[in-house]
Design a protein around this nucleic acid. Structure first.
Length: 472
RNA sequence: GCCCCCUUCGUCUAGUGGUUAGGACGCAAGAUUUUCAUUCUUGAAACAGGAGUUCGAUUCUCCUAGGGGGUGCCA
């Protein structure tokens, strides 16, 4: 039996779960699932000054929304401190680390000199012991090899070779005794039995340093896969300006986790020409070989396209629960033109079949459904007003109104038949009667199909809205 | 500065020495239609540049340019 695959997503809790992090998490999750392995979550909070509990909560919520469930409780790196220190001391005992002290000015001088020489920095204490008086102010540095080179065998980047003289003596333990990220990742990945490290390629150079630590510890290396970063639409680093929002923000904008997953999966990974990749296919198809080496740009228009697909193909039940969750959050005030308090979930639920076909996001869907929750007198926009002011409109509305009153069965087919009959009886083109009806019923010239509108409103409301316009 | 990575239509990508360089989003035009959206059809649109290697390069090598990352007692 082969060794089970274990991956992890290891965000630092200094902000929300942004789009790049979400994709890294998705890749780790998809890879683990595709291999029948486990996906773990580790919160890298070794920098206590920058870590916040709000960020932890946001990341957890984001993961949850995206449907990326870890196979175990999250590991908090800060809680592994003792183990990190233990490993650091082992490194010191074996001659792979040294205590170092230098003032900020001295450090800067050392770096400037190293930079001028084109090599990485080395620090006091490396070759001779540090004076006793400084011992309590020392950091513990890794004594990185100077000769030779370090090779990263990366599943995405291929073999990347970096000369050892380019890799500096990083800090393992800060002067207050706390472990740094560089030490902690190595120890935690090892202790958690991580077999595949899939992360952003901003860690590529660091990876070489980490490999040196693995070697000093005589630990086996995990498989590395450094994926390119996501850029904004202008090619620059992703920022708030172009979509580097938290996962929660995408939920608020009406995106579905499925749509997000599909879009994110396609951003930097491909499976031939396949575009629509539902989650079960993603799990079936995902592989490291399909990951692209070039960075990708974030494109909202394509996200919309994928999302629209999932909105219109989701079952009404699934859609309703997403809608409920969105409405409960009540975070879309600026997105929606009316108060979410007016939304009647039962009404919404029974009309999802035609609403979902024309919406790319849930917000769009709710916007399309707005006419359902308005009450007379309706606010008319300019174009609707115009359609109602044409000659003969009142006659048409009155005629249709009385027909509606007598209609036996209030269903779509009957309504369609009624309207068509009315049109032919009065020798009117359908284009003459639909616009004023649409205006009177929705206050707008843009709406779902007129039969759906009429049917969804119900007889009472239809008559009420028509009469309101007729008497005006 | 030094080190590392990247470069196919506007965008996401397929491609792995010989293809009319394919698909998707978006865009344009047309069809359908009661509006909008959908759907359908059609169209415009790419191998960053330069040297090699080769009978033949989008594909292999090198250089240049551009972009990104690293170079922290951040992760």
């Amino acid at each position: 039996m082969s060794q089970p695959i274990i991956t992890r997503f290891a965000p630092s809790p200094t902000g929300y779960l942004h789009i790049g992090g979400a994709r890294t998490a998705l890749f780790n999750w998809a890879f683990a699932k595709s291999q029948g392995g486990q996906f773990l979550l580790r919160i890298e909070d070794t920098d206590k000054a920058r870590s916040t509990s709000d960020a932890i909560a946001a990341i957890l919520k984001g993961m949850d929304w995206l449907g990326l469930k870890a196979d175990a409780e999250p590991v908090f790196q800060s809680k592994q401190k003792d183990r990190h220190v233990e490993v650091a001391e082992q490194l010191l005992a074996n001659g792979y680390a040294y205590r170092s002290f230098a003032t900020d000015e001295e450090i800067e001088e050392i770096r400037n000199k190293a930079r001028a020489d084109g090599v990485a920095a080395r620090y006091p204490g490396r070759d001779e012991p540090i004076a006793d008086e400084f011992l309590d102010r020392c950091v513990l540095r890794f004594k990185a090899p100077i000769e030779g080179e370090t090779k990263i065998s990366d599943q995405v980047q291929g073999d990347v070779v970096i000369r050892n003289d380019q890799l500096d003596d990083l800090v393992l333990l800060r002067s207050d005794g706390s472990p740094t990220y560089m030490l902690a990742v190595v120890v935690d990945d090892h202790d958690m039995g991580i077999t595949h490290v899939i992360r952003g390629d901003d860690h590529l150079t660091n990876c070489a340093k980490q490999i040196q630590i693995y070697n000093a510890l005589q630990w086996d290396l995990p498989v590395f896969a450094h994926i390119p970063l996501i850029h904004g639409s202008d090619g620059a680093k992703l920022s708030k300006r172009h979509g580097a929002l938290g996962a929660e923000a995408y939920k608020a904008m009406g995106y579905l986790p499925e749509g997000m997953r599909n879009y994110l999966a396609k951003l930097g990974w491909s499976h031939g020409d396949d575009e629509i990749i539902p989650t079960d296919k993603l799990i079936e198809w995902f592989d490291l070989a399909g990951i692209n080496k070039a960075p990708a740009r974030f494109d909202m228009a394509k996200l919309d396209h994928f999302n629209g697909h999932y909105v219109s193909t989701s079952s009404d039940d699934d859609l309703l629960s997403s809608l409920k969750s969105l409405i409960e959050d009540n975070v879309f005030t600026p997105e929606l033109s009316y108060s979410s308090k007016l939304i009647d979930l039962d009404v919404l639920s029974s009309n999802l079949s035609f609403l979902k076909e024309r919406s790319k996001t849930l917000i769009e869907l709710l916007e399309t459904a707005a006419y359902l929750f308005k009450s007379v007198p309706l606010e008319m926009d300019a174009k609707a007003e115009k359609a109602l002011n044409k000659d003969g409109v009142t006659d048409i509305l009155e005629g249709v109104c009385s027909k509606f009153t007598d209609l036996q069965q209030w269903n779509r087919d009957e309504i369609e038949g009624l309207l068509k009959d009315y049109a032919s009886e009065h020798d009117l083109k359908f284009g003459k009667i639909a616009p004023p009806l649409r205006s009177a019923l929705t206050g707008s010239m843009v709406s779902p199909g007129i039969y759906d509108v009429i049917h969804s409103l119900g007889r009472d409301e239809v008559l009420k809205r028509l009469q309101e316009v007729i008497k005006a």
